[in-house]
Design a protein around this nucleic acid. Structure first.
Lengths: 166, 166
DNA sequence: AACATCTTTCAATTTATTTTGAAAGTTCAG
DNA sequence: CTGAACTTTCAAAATAAATTGAAAGATGTT
């Protein structure tokens, strides 16, 4: 397989995977493109390589910055801005864990805590409370796990996991 | 908060969360509904409570069975079928981990392995190989973690994690 | 201030996903 | 075999999400 074929397959696979995880395909593809780019790319470069519109490129680039996965990069003497991805994949994983925790797990934990206050005076309500408290533990577990990933140092993390789960 | 309010909020929250994770809202809501139902429900019950069509109910019920999250339940003397959810939330988490691993992680690992065979004879190609091998380790890590969840016994799991990540 | 260059916005359009509901399929009792 | 009760299918319709591209907004230059 040539480099060009491999790159195309990577962009395509990454986009598909993202879709399954509720992430917009283009955003994932821009991220993938920047990940494998040896040098900073301009919005124009991204538009050309992925054949997408200026508006689309701009929106998704901003979203990626918002997720902390890419950064603006200014070249001296150049007017327009360039973009670089965080290349350390473990840092990327930690950043994603951090954001998902903040954006998704925390709000859910809040709602669950609130639901636990509801009356439990009928068979249905009692069953309901059981389910909610079960979900709360699982969510708490997910939260701790993601937090562990967030706090972990690059190599330390896998070592710890391997120790426990061989 | 009354039980009815709490239940409505739960169904709604669960549906929203699902959407963020690339899961169809109705499927999540049916699952939530069956989770908190003390007794098996018929397709008709689901249609009524969630105000959805027969076709929609049927499709998503099948999909949930396919994910191993709910089961058909036959009542003696009744013609139609009923459905019950797996109520042990840790089992649910394990089942989801298992399926996601099978459906998503494994195919990605295969593609990554294939991409590692590509030529690395230019600066771009070398950068590309670095990224791919980084992603491979993270994906391998995710795979191990999910596998740990899959294999874990209910209470053992949290204990192990807490030991390591305090 | 007028211009050039680049970025952002957003209403309109396109594309993708979900939902509907009627028809076809299945199963079984009489 | 026939009809009643229930399930499944699937083309069409509705809804939701992503994308476009032109216009408006910035920002610096002459």
């Amino acid at each position: 397989m040539t480099y060009d074929e491999a790159k195309a397959k990577f962009l395509q696979t990454w986009g598909t995977l993202a879709t399954q995880w509720g992430i917009n395909r283009t955003m994932a593809q821009i991220h993938a493109l920047l990940l494998v780019a040896p040098d900073p790319l301009s919005a124009e470069d991204v538009m050309e390589q992925l054949m997408i519109s200026r508006g689309n490129a701009n929106m998704n680039l901003r979203e990626l910055i918002d997720w902390g996965l890419i950064f603006r990069h200014l070249k001296p003497g150049e007017r327009r801005e360039f973009f670089v991805a965080e290349k350390d994949i473990w840092k990327v994983a930690r950043q994603v864990a951090k954001e998902r925790r903040r954006r998704e797990i925390k709000p859910v934990l809040e709602v669950l805590a609130e639901l636990q206050l509801a009356d439990a005076d009928t068979p249905e309500a009692i069953e309901f409370q059981k389910v909610i408290s079960g979900i709360s533990s699982v969510a708490g577990f997910a939260d701790s796990t993601l937090n562990a990933v967030v706090r972990a140092e690059e190599n330390w993390l896998m070592g710890q996991f391997m120790k426990v789960f061989k």
